[in-house]
Nucleic acid binder design. Structure first.
Lengths: 232, 232
DNA sequence: TCGATTTTGTTAACGCGTTCACAAACTCTT
DNA sequence: AAGAGTTTGTGAACGCGTTAACAAAATCGA
Protein backbone atom coordinates (compact mmCIF):
# COMPACT_ATOMS: atom_id res chain seq x y z
CA UNK A 1 0.00 0.00 0.00
CA UNK A 2 1.27 3.43 -0.92
CA UNK A 3 0.70 6.62 0.97
CA UNK A 4 -1.49 8.97 -1.03
CA UNK A 5 -1.53 12.71 -0.83
CA UNK A 6 -4.67 14.12 0.68
CA UNK A 7 -7.18 14.45 -2.14
CA UNK A 8 -7.72 18.01 -3.27
CA UNK A 9 -10.77 19.45 -1.58
CA UNK A 10 -13.51 21.20 -3.49
CA UNK A 11 -12.40 24.82 -3.32
CA UNK A 12 -15.13 27.13 -4.57
CA UNK A 13 -12.82 30.18 -4.41
CA UNK A 14 -10.10 28.62 -6.51
CA UNK A 15 -11.91 27.88 -9.74
CA UNK A 16 -10.15 25.81 -12.31
CA UNK A 17 -9.37 27.95 -15.32
CA UNK A 18 -8.29 26.13 -18.48
CA UNK A 19 -4.66 26.64 -19.48
CA UNK A 20 -5.62 28.02 -22.87
CA UNK A 21 -7.73 30.67 -21.13
CA UNK A 22 -4.99 31.60 -18.67
CA UNK A 23 -2.66 32.17 -21.60
CA UNK A 24 -5.11 34.64 -23.12
CA UNK A 25 -6.09 36.62 -20.05
CA UNK A 26 -2.92 38.78 -20.21
CA UNK A 27 -3.86 39.68 -23.79
CA UNK A 28 -7.29 40.85 -22.68
CA UNK A 29 -5.66 42.74 -19.86
CA UNK A 30 -3.42 44.58 -22.29
CA UNK A 31 -6.37 45.47 -24.51
CA UNK A 32 -8.32 46.71 -21.50
CA UNK A 33 -5.39 48.83 -20.37
CA UNK A 34 -5.30 50.44 -23.79
CA UNK A 35 -9.03 51.15 -23.60
CA UNK A 36 -8.68 52.69 -20.15
CA UNK A 37 -5.96 54.99 -21.47
CA UNK A 38 -8.24 56.00 -24.31
CA UNK A 39 -10.89 56.90 -21.76
CA UNK A 40 -13.31 54.20 -22.91
CA UNK A 41 -15.66 53.31 -20.09
CA UNK A 42 -17.64 50.42 -21.52
CA UNK A 43 -17.01 47.88 -24.20
CA UNK A 44 -18.74 44.95 -25.91
CA UNK A 45 -17.23 41.51 -26.40
CA UNK A 46 -17.02 42.11 -30.14
CA UNK A 47 -14.73 45.11 -29.81
CA UNK A 48 -12.56 43.62 -27.10
CA UNK A 49 -12.25 40.39 -29.05
CA UNK A 50 -11.11 42.24 -32.15
CA UNK A 51 -8.48 44.14 -30.17
CA UNK A 52 -7.24 40.89 -28.73
CA UNK A 53 -7.33 39.08 -32.05
CA UNK A 54 -9.70 36.33 -30.96
CA UNK A 55 -13.21 35.09 -31.70
CA UNK A 56 -15.89 36.95 -29.66
CA UNK A 57 -17.37 33.64 -28.49
CA UNK A 58 -13.98 32.56 -27.24
CA UNK A 59 -13.55 35.80 -25.35
CA UNK A 60 -16.92 35.45 -23.65
CA UNK A 61 -16.27 31.83 -22.74
CA UNK A 62 -12.86 32.75 -21.33
CA UNK A 63 -14.37 35.50 -19.20
CA UNK A 64 -17.15 33.21 -18.06
CA UNK A 65 -14.59 31.08 -16.22
CA UNK A 66 -13.79 34.05 -14.00
CA UNK A 67 -17.39 34.87 -13.23
CA UNK A 68 -20.18 36.94 -14.66
CA UNK A 69 -18.70 40.39 -14.91
CA UNK A 70 -20.61 41.75 -17.90
CA UNK A 71 -24.09 43.16 -18.35
CA UNK A 72 -26.34 41.65 -21.01
CA UNK A 73 -27.43 44.12 -23.61
CA UNK A 74 -24.66 46.49 -22.54
CA UNK A 75 -21.19 44.94 -22.42
CA UNK A 76 -18.36 45.13 -19.94
CA UNK A 77 -17.27 47.95 -17.66
CA UNK A 78 -13.68 48.37 -18.79
CA UNK A 79 -12.20 49.38 -15.46
CA UNK A 80 -14.09 46.73 -13.48
CA UNK A 81 -13.25 43.91 -15.86
CA UNK A 82 -9.62 44.92 -15.91
CA UNK A 83 -9.49 44.77 -12.14
CA UNK A 84 -11.14 41.34 -12.04
CA UNK A 85 -8.73 39.85 -14.56
CA UNK A 86 -5.74 41.47 -12.87
CA UNK A 87 -6.84 40.02 -9.54
CA UNK A 88 -7.33 36.57 -11.04
CA UNK A 89 -3.88 36.72 -12.62
CA UNK A 90 -2.28 37.70 -9.33
CA UNK A 91 -1.35 41.16 -10.52
CA UNK A 92 -2.53 42.87 -7.38
CA UNK A 93 0.98 42.21 -6.15
CA UNK A 94 4.33 42.58 -7.90
CA UNK A 95 6.28 39.43 -8.71
CA UNK A 96 10.02 39.53 -8.35
CA UNK A 97 12.07 37.50 -10.80
CA UNK A 98 15.74 36.61 -10.96
CA UNK A 99 17.46 36.39 -14.33
CA UNK A 100 20.34 33.95 -14.66
CA UNK A 101 22.72 34.81 -17.48
CA UNK A 102 23.48 38.42 -18.35
CA UNK A 103 24.52 37.99 -21.99
CA UNK A 104 22.78 39.74 -24.82
CA UNK A 105 19.40 38.24 -24.09
CA UNK A 106 19.61 38.58 -20.31
CA UNK A 107 20.58 42.23 -20.70
CA UNK A 108 17.73 42.85 -23.11
CA UNK A 109 15.30 41.24 -20.70
CA UNK A 110 16.49 43.27 -17.73
CA UNK A 111 16.05 46.45 -19.78
CA UNK A 112 12.60 45.45 -21.04
CA UNK A 113 10.13 48.22 -20.29
CA UNK A 114 7.05 46.06 -20.59
CA UNK A 115 7.47 44.17 -17.33
CA UNK A 116 6.88 46.87 -14.74
CA UNK A 117 3.36 47.70 -15.83
CA UNK A 118 2.41 44.02 -15.74
CA UNK A 119 3.32 43.23 -12.17
CA UNK A 120 6.76 41.84 -13.02
CA UNK A 121 9.92 43.24 -11.43
CA UNK A 122 13.43 42.13 -12.30
CA UNK A 123 14.82 41.93 -8.79
CA UNK A 124 18.20 40.33 -9.34
CA UNK A 125 20.73 39.40 -12.01
CA UNK A 126 23.09 36.46 -11.66
CA UNK A 127 25.96 35.18 -13.78
CA UNK A 128 29.02 32.97 -13.58
CA UNK A 129 31.37 35.14 -15.64
CA UNK A 130 33.78 37.04 -13.29
CA UNK A 131 33.94 39.79 -15.92
CA UNK A 132 30.25 40.46 -15.50
CA UNK A 133 29.89 40.02 -11.75
CA UNK A 134 29.81 43.35 -10.00
CA UNK A 135 28.96 45.31 -13.14
CA UNK A 136 25.70 47.19 -13.31
CA UNK A 137 23.09 46.27 -15.93
CA UNK A 138 19.90 48.31 -16.17
CA UNK A 139 20.60 49.65 -12.71
CA UNK A 140 21.07 46.24 -11.09
CA UNK A 141 24.41 44.89 -9.89
CA UNK A 142 25.18 41.43 -11.24
CA UNK A 143 25.68 38.88 -8.45
CA UNK A 144 27.71 35.66 -8.51
CA UNK A 145 25.65 32.54 -8.96
CA UNK A 146 26.83 31.28 -5.58
CA UNK A 147 24.65 33.93 -4.00
CA UNK A 148 21.55 32.65 -5.79
CA UNK A 149 20.05 30.76 -2.83
CA UNK A 150 20.47 33.64 -0.39
CA UNK A 151 19.10 36.18 -2.87
CA UNK A 152 16.05 34.03 -3.60
CA UNK A 153 15.40 33.43 0.08
CA UNK A 154 15.92 37.00 1.22
CA UNK A 155 13.79 38.62 -1.47
CA UNK A 156 11.21 35.83 -1.53
CA UNK A 157 11.63 35.28 -5.25
CA UNK A 158 9.66 32.38 -6.73
CA UNK A 159 10.22 32.94 -10.47
CA UNK A 160 13.52 32.44 -12.28
CA UNK A 161 14.54 33.13 -15.88
CA UNK A 162 17.21 31.09 -17.64
CA UNK A 163 19.01 33.21 -20.25
CA UNK A 164 22.18 31.16 -20.57
CA UNK A 165 23.59 29.03 -23.39
CA UNK A 166 21.88 25.69 -23.85
CA UNK A 167 24.62 23.65 -22.21
CA UNK A 168 24.30 25.48 -18.91
CA UNK A 169 20.51 25.33 -18.80
CA UNK A 170 20.02 22.09 -16.88
CA UNK A 171 22.56 22.89 -14.18
CA UNK A 172 21.10 26.37 -13.79
CA UNK A 173 17.63 24.87 -13.49
CA UNK A 174 18.91 22.54 -10.77
CA UNK A 175 20.42 25.50 -8.91
CA UNK A 176 17.20 27.48 -9.22
CA UNK A 177 15.13 24.58 -7.87
CA UNK A 178 17.61 24.04 -5.04
CA UNK A 179 17.34 27.74 -4.20
CA UNK A 180 13.58 27.41 -3.84
CA UNK A 181 12.38 28.68 -7.20
CA UNK A 182 9.09 27.05 -8.25
CA UNK A 183 8.52 28.66 -11.67
CA UNK A 184 11.05 28.86 -14.48
CA UNK A 185 10.98 30.65 -17.81
CA UNK A 186 13.58 28.99 -20.01
CA UNK A 187 15.04 30.88 -22.97
CA UNK A 188 17.93 28.49 -23.43
CA UNK A 189 17.72 26.09 -26.39
CA UNK A 190 17.47 22.99 -24.23
CA UNK A 191 14.82 20.92 -22.45
CA UNK A 192 15.24 21.08 -18.69
CA UNK A 193 13.96 18.44 -16.30
CA UNK A 194 12.54 19.62 -12.99
CA UNK A 195 10.80 17.91 -10.07
CA UNK A 196 7.04 17.88 -9.66
CA UNK A 197 5.62 21.10 -8.35
CA UNK A 198 7.95 23.27 -10.42
CA UNK A 199 6.48 24.91 -13.53
CA UNK A 200 8.59 25.43 -16.61
CA UNK A 201 7.71 27.43 -19.67
CA UNK A 202 9.98 27.51 -22.67
CA UNK A 203 10.53 30.24 -25.21
CA UNK A 204 12.70 29.20 -28.11
CA UNK A 205 13.60 31.91 -30.58
CA UNK A 206 14.99 29.72 -33.33
CA UNK A 207 12.14 27.23 -33.11
CA UNK A 208 9.64 30.01 -33.79
CA UNK A 209 11.57 30.99 -36.91
CA UNK A 210 11.91 27.37 -38.00
CA UNK A 211 8.14 26.98 -37.81
CA UNK A 212 7.71 30.03 -40.01
CA UNK A 213 10.32 28.68 -42.43
CA UNK A 214 8.35 25.44 -42.68
CA UNK A 215 5.22 27.31 -43.70
CA UNK A 216 7.21 29.42 -46.15
CA UNK A 217 8.49 26.27 -47.77
CA UNK A 218 4.97 24.93 -48.12
CA UNK A 219 3.78 28.20 -49.62
CA UNK A 220 6.63 28.03 -52.12
CA UNK A 221 5.89 24.47 -53.15
CA UNK A 222 2.17 25.22 -53.38
CA UNK A 223 3.01 28.08 -55.74
CA UNK A 224 5.12 25.77 -57.85
CA UNK A 225 2.25 23.32 -58.10
CA UNK A 226 -0.15 26.10 -59.02
CA UNK A 227 2.26 27.09 -61.81
CA UNK A 228 2.40 23.54 -63.06
CA UNK A 229 -1.37 23.44 -63.07
CA UNK A 230 -1.63 26.63 -65.09
CA UNK A 231 1.11 25.60 -67.49
CA UNK A 232 -0.40 22.17 -68.03
CA UNK B 1 -21.91 34.16 -57.70
CA UNK B 2 -18.43 34.59 -56.31
CA UNK B 3 -15.21 33.60 -57.97
CA UNK B 4 -13.64 30.77 -56.04
CA UNK B 5 -9.98 29.94 -55.92
CA UNK B 6 -9.07 26.74 -57.65
CA UNK B 7 -9.64 23.98 -55.15
CA UNK B 8 -6.43 22.57 -53.72
CA UNK B 9 -5.48 19.44 -55.56
CA UNK B 10 -4.62 16.23 -53.82
CA UNK B 11 -0.87 16.53 -53.47
CA UNK B 12 0.65 13.28 -52.27
CA UNK B 13 4.09 14.89 -51.87
CA UNK B 14 2.87 17.68 -49.65
CA UNK B 15 1.38 15.81 -46.75
CA UNK B 16 -0.58 17.76 -44.21
CA UNK B 17 1.33 17.80 -40.95
CA UNK B 18 -0.60 18.95 -37.86
CA UNK B 19 0.50 22.28 -36.40
CA UNK B 20 1.28 20.73 -33.04
CA UNK B 21 3.62 18.30 -34.74
CA UNK B 22 5.37 21.00 -36.79
CA UNK B 23 6.03 22.88 -33.57
CA UNK B 24 7.79 19.84 -32.10
CA UNK B 25 9.88 18.75 -35.08
CA UNK B 26 12.57 21.36 -34.35
CA UNK B 27 12.86 19.94 -30.84
CA UNK B 28 13.46 16.47 -32.21
CA UNK B 29 15.94 17.92 -34.65
CA UNK B 30 17.89 19.49 -31.83
CA UNK B 31 17.93 16.23 -29.87
CA UNK B 32 19.09 14.34 -32.96
CA UNK B 33 21.87 16.86 -33.55
CA UNK B 34 23.05 16.30 -30.00
CA UNK B 35 23.05 12.55 -30.55
CA UNK B 36 25.02 12.87 -33.79
CA UNK B 37 27.63 14.93 -31.95
CA UNK B 38 27.84 12.23 -29.31
CA UNK B 39 28.48 9.70 -32.05
CA UNK B 40 25.25 7.81 -31.41
CA UNK B 41 24.23 5.94 -34.58
CA UNK B 42 20.86 4.48 -33.64
CA UNK B 43 18.21 5.39 -31.15
CA UNK B 44 14.82 4.17 -29.95
CA UNK B 45 11.72 6.31 -29.62
CA UNK B 46 11.91 6.05 -25.84
CA UNK B 47 15.32 7.68 -25.61
CA UNK B 48 14.62 10.33 -28.18
CA UNK B 49 11.30 11.13 -26.51
CA UNK B 50 12.97 11.56 -23.15
CA UNK B 51 15.58 13.90 -24.62
CA UNK B 52 12.82 15.94 -26.22
CA UNK B 53 10.66 15.94 -23.11
CA UNK B 54 7.64 14.29 -24.72
CA UNK B 55 5.66 11.08 -24.50
CA UNK B 56 7.17 8.26 -26.65
CA UNK B 57 3.80 7.61 -28.28
CA UNK B 58 3.55 11.25 -29.23
CA UNK B 59 7.01 11.17 -30.76
CA UNK B 60 6.20 8.12 -32.86
CA UNK B 61 2.92 9.59 -33.98
CA UNK B 62 4.63 12.83 -34.93
CA UNK B 63 7.25 11.00 -36.96
CA UNK B 64 4.60 8.87 -38.63
CA UNK B 65 3.25 11.99 -40.34
CA UNK B 66 6.56 12.34 -42.18
CA UNK B 67 6.72 8.75 -43.29
CA UNK B 68 8.04 5.46 -42.00
CA UNK B 69 11.67 6.15 -41.25
CA UNK B 70 12.27 3.74 -38.38
CA UNK B 71 12.93 0.00 -38.20
CA UNK B 72 10.71 -2.13 -35.99
CA UNK B 73 12.59 -3.93 -33.31
CA UNK B 74 15.58 -1.61 -33.84
CA UNK B 75 14.74 2.07 -33.67
CA UNK B 76 15.76 5.05 -35.79
CA UNK B 77 18.98 5.72 -37.65
CA UNK B 78 19.96 9.03 -36.09
CA UNK B 79 21.62 10.57 -39.12
CA UNK B 80 18.92 9.45 -41.53
CA UNK B 81 16.04 10.64 -39.35
CA UNK B 82 17.75 13.95 -38.80
CA UNK B 83 18.05 14.46 -42.53
CA UNK B 84 14.40 13.58 -43.14
CA UNK B 85 13.13 16.01 -40.49
CA UNK B 86 15.48 18.74 -41.68
CA UNK B 87 14.23 18.28 -45.24
CA UNK B 88 10.61 18.38 -44.14
CA UNK B 89 11.26 21.56 -42.16
CA UNK B 90 12.88 23.22 -45.15
CA UNK B 91 16.31 23.30 -43.54
CA UNK B 92 18.08 22.09 -46.64
CA UNK B 93 18.25 25.75 -47.50
CA UNK B 94 19.09 28.78 -45.37
CA UNK B 95 16.30 31.24 -44.64
CA UNK B 96 17.17 34.92 -44.56
CA UNK B 97 15.32 37.10 -42.08
CA UNK B 98 15.15 40.85 -41.60
CA UNK B 99 14.90 42.27 -38.09
CA UNK B 100 13.04 45.54 -37.67
CA UNK B 101 14.04 47.43 -34.53
CA UNK B 102 17.60 47.36 -33.25
CA UNK B 103 16.97 48.12 -29.60
CA UNK B 104 18.03 45.81 -26.80
CA UNK B 105 15.97 42.88 -28.05
CA UNK B 106 16.78 43.36 -31.72
CA UNK B 107 20.48 43.53 -30.92
CA UNK B 108 20.25 40.42 -28.78
CA UNK B 109 18.48 38.58 -31.59
CA UNK B 110 21.03 39.59 -34.20
CA UNK B 111 23.79 38.32 -31.95
CA UNK B 112 22.01 35.07 -31.17
CA UNK B 113 24.30 32.14 -31.92
CA UNK B 114 21.56 29.55 -32.16
CA UNK B 115 20.18 30.65 -35.53
CA UNK B 116 22.98 29.76 -37.92
CA UNK B 117 22.97 26.05 -37.13
CA UNK B 118 19.23 25.90 -37.68
CA UNK B 119 19.03 27.26 -41.18
CA UNK B 120 18.26 30.82 -40.10
CA UNK B 121 20.43 33.75 -41.18
CA UNK B 122 19.92 37.32 -40.03
CA UNK B 123 20.40 39.05 -43.36
CA UNK B 124 19.44 42.63 -42.58
CA UNK B 125 18.73 45.04 -39.73
CA UNK B 126 16.37 47.97 -40.09
CA UNK B 127 15.45 50.84 -37.79
CA UNK B 128 13.91 54.32 -37.85
CA UNK B 129 16.26 55.96 -35.36
CA UNK B 130 18.85 58.11 -37.23
CA UNK B 131 21.26 57.48 -34.35
CA UNK B 132 21.25 53.78 -35.13
CA UNK B 133 21.15 53.86 -38.91
CA UNK B 134 24.59 53.26 -40.34
CA UNK B 135 25.97 51.73 -37.16
CA UNK B 136 27.13 48.15 -37.18
CA UNK B 137 25.43 45.56 -34.98
CA UNK B 138 26.77 42.01 -34.90
CA UNK B 139 28.59 42.73 -38.13
CA UNK B 140 25.55 44.05 -39.98
CA UNK B 141 25.04 47.69 -40.92
CA UNK B 142 21.66 49.03 -39.81
CA UNK B 143 19.59 50.30 -42.74
CA UNK B 144 16.85 52.93 -42.75
CA UNK B 145 13.35 51.52 -42.82
CA UNK B 146 12.72 53.24 -46.16
CA UNK B 147 15.08 50.72 -47.74
CA UNK B 148 13.01 47.81 -46.43
CA UNK B 149 11.23 47.02 -49.69
CA UNK B 150 14.38 47.05 -51.79
CA UNK B 151 16.31 44.96 -49.25
CA UNK B 152 13.54 42.38 -49.09
CA UNK B 153 13.25 42.21 -52.87
CA UNK B 154 16.94 42.06 -53.59
CA UNK B 155 17.80 39.40 -51.02
CA UNK B 156 14.58 37.47 -51.52
CA UNK B 157 13.69 37.65 -47.83
CA UNK B 158 10.33 36.19 -46.86
CA UNK B 159 10.56 36.28 -43.05
CA UNK B 160 10.50 39.41 -40.93
CA UNK B 161 10.97 39.94 -37.19
CA UNK B 162 9.33 42.80 -35.33
CA UNK B 163 11.43 43.89 -32.35
CA UNK B 164 10.03 47.37 -31.88
CA UNK B 165 7.92 48.95 -29.12
CA UNK B 166 4.28 47.92 -29.16
CA UNK B 167 3.01 51.15 -30.66
CA UNK B 168 5.09 50.77 -33.82
CA UNK B 169 4.21 47.11 -34.35
CA UNK B 170 1.17 47.48 -36.60
CA UNK B 171 2.76 50.03 -38.93
CA UNK B 172 5.91 47.93 -39.15
CA UNK B 173 3.80 44.89 -39.97
CA UNK B 174 2.09 46.87 -42.72
CA UNK B 175 5.47 47.88 -44.13
CA UNK B 176 6.73 44.32 -44.01
CA UNK B 177 3.68 43.03 -45.84
CA UNK B 178 3.94 45.82 -48.41
CA UNK B 179 7.58 44.86 -48.93
CA UNK B 180 6.56 41.31 -49.74
CA UNK B 181 7.20 39.56 -46.43
CA UNK B 182 4.86 36.59 -45.90
CA UNK B 183 5.92 35.39 -42.44
CA UNK B 184 6.29 37.55 -39.36
CA UNK B 185 7.64 36.82 -35.91
CA UNK B 186 6.30 39.49 -33.59
CA UNK B 187 8.09 40.24 -30.32
CA UNK B 188 6.28 43.52 -29.77
CA UNK B 189 3.58 43.55 -27.09
CA UNK B 190 0.74 44.15 -29.53
CA UNK B 191 -1.59 42.16 -31.77
CA UNK B 192 -0.92 42.88 -35.43
CA UNK B 193 -3.48 42.39 -38.18
CA UNK B 194 -2.24 41.07 -41.51
CA UNK B 195 -3.93 39.99 -44.75
CA UNK B 196 -4.64 36.36 -45.57
CA UNK B 197 -1.65 34.43 -46.74
CA UNK B 198 0.68 36.06 -44.23
CA UNK B 199 1.65 34.02 -41.17
CA UNK B 200 2.22 35.69 -37.85
CA UNK B 201 3.65 34.12 -34.74
CA UNK B 202 3.85 36.04 -31.50
CA UNK B 203 6.33 35.79 -28.67
CA UNK B 204 5.43 37.84 -25.65
CA UNK B 205 7.98 37.94 -22.88
CA UNK B 206 5.82 39.49 -20.20
CA UNK B 207 2.85 37.25 -20.96
CA UNK B 208 4.98 34.18 -20.31
CA UNK B 209 5.96 35.58 -16.93
CA UNK B 210 2.38 36.55 -16.14
CA UNK B 211 1.28 32.98 -16.78
CA UNK B 212 3.92 31.72 -14.37
CA UNK B 213 2.84 34.32 -11.82
CA UNK B 214 -0.72 33.06 -12.08
CA UNK B 215 0.36 29.53 -11.26
CA UNK B 216 2.53 30.80 -8.42
CA UNK B 217 -0.48 32.56 -6.97
CA UNK B 218 -2.50 29.36 -7.12
CA UNK B 219 0.27 27.38 -5.47
CA UNK B 220 0.40 29.98 -2.70
CA UNK B 221 -3.35 29.91 -2.10
CA UNK B 222 -3.38 26.10 -2.24
CA UNK B 223 -0.70 26.12 0.47
CA UNK B 224 -2.80 28.44 2.61
CA UNK B 225 -5.78 26.13 2.29
CA UNK B 226 -3.64 23.14 3.18
CA UNK B 227 -2.52 25.01 6.30
CA UNK B 228 -6.11 25.75 7.26
CA UNK B 229 -6.97 22.11 6.82
CA UNK B 230 -4.13 20.99 9.09
CA UNK B 231 -4.89 23.63 11.71
CA UNK B 232 -8.58 22.78 11.78
C1' DT C 1 13.85 -22.70 -38.78
C1' DC C 2 11.16 -21.22 -35.06
C1' DG C 3 9.96 -19.01 -30.98
C1' DA C 4 11.08 -15.16 -27.85
C1' DT C 5 11.99 -10.37 -27.65
C1' DT C 6 12.12 -5.75 -29.09
C1' DT C 7 10.31 -1.66 -31.10
C1' DT C 8 7.82 0.67 -34.61
C1' DG C 9 3.51 2.35 -36.92
C1' DT C 10 -1.34 2.86 -36.34
C1' DT C 11 -6.05 2.46 -34.70
C1' DA C 12 -9.22 3.77 -31.43
C1' DA C 13 -10.65 6.10 -27.29
C1' DC C 14 -10.42 10.02 -24.66
C1' DG C 15 -10.04 14.83 -23.30
C1' DC C 16 -9.45 19.56 -24.13
C1' DG C 17 -10.40 23.65 -26.75
C1' DT C 18 -13.17 26.09 -30.11
C1' DT C 19 -17.22 27.53 -32.12
C1' DC C 20 -22.06 27.85 -32.94
C1' DA C 21 -26.44 29.03 -31.59
C1' DC C 22 -29.74 30.53 -28.48
C1' DA C 23 -32.08 31.64 -24.12
C1' DA C 24 -31.65 35.01 -20.54
C1' DA C 25 -31.24 39.59 -19.24
C1' DC C 26 -30.64 44.23 -19.96
C1' DT C 27 -31.78 49.01 -22.42
C1' DC C 28 -34.47 51.99 -25.15
C1' DT C 29 -38.40 53.71 -27.53
C1' DT C 30 -43.11 54.38 -27.92
C1' DA D 1 -45.98 48.87 -19.77
C1' DA D 2 -44.79 46.36 -23.55
C1' DG D 3 -42.27 45.25 -27.49
C1' DA D 4 -38.05 45.74 -30.26
C1' DG D 5 -33.27 45.56 -30.19
C1' DT D 6 -28.64 44.34 -27.90
C1' DT D 7 -25.39 41.65 -25.82
C1' DT D 8 -24.00 38.37 -22.44
C1' DG D 9 -23.44 33.64 -20.63
C1' DT D 10 -23.64 28.83 -21.68
C1' DG D 11 -25.11 24.16 -23.43
C1' DA D 12 -23.98 21.27 -27.05
C1' DA D 13 -21.60 19.84 -31.18
C1' DC D 14 -17.47 19.55 -33.39
C1' DG D 15 -12.56 19.03 -34.30
C1' DC D 16 -7.88 18.62 -33.01
C1' DG D 17 -4.34 16.64 -30.14
C1' DT D 18 -2.89 13.18 -26.85
C1' DT D 19 -2.45 8.71 -25.11
C1' DA D 20 -2.98 3.89 -24.59
C1' DA D 21 -2.82 -0.44 -26.66
C1' DC D 22 -1.72 -3.65 -29.99
C1' DA D 23 -0.61 -5.77 -34.49
C1' DA D 24 3.19 -5.83 -37.73
C1' DA D 25 7.90 -6.34 -38.54
C1' DA D 26 12.38 -6.64 -37.39
C1' DT D 27 16.43 -9.08 -34.55
C1' DC D 28 18.44 -12.74 -31.83
C1' DG D 29 19.41 -17.21 -29.87
C1' DA D 30 18.91 -22.04 -29.90
Amino acid sequence: MTILRSPRLAEPNVRDIPDATVARLPIYLRALNALVEQGVKSCASNELAEQAGVNPAKLRKDLSYLGSYGTRGVGYDVEYLRYQIAREMGQTQDWDVVIVGVGNLGSALSAYQGFSTRGIRVAALVDTDPERIGTEVSGIVVSPIDDLASIVAEREISIGVIATPGLAAQSVADLLVAAGITSILNFAPAIVQVPDGVDVRKVDLSIELQILAYHEQRKASADRNADKEVTA
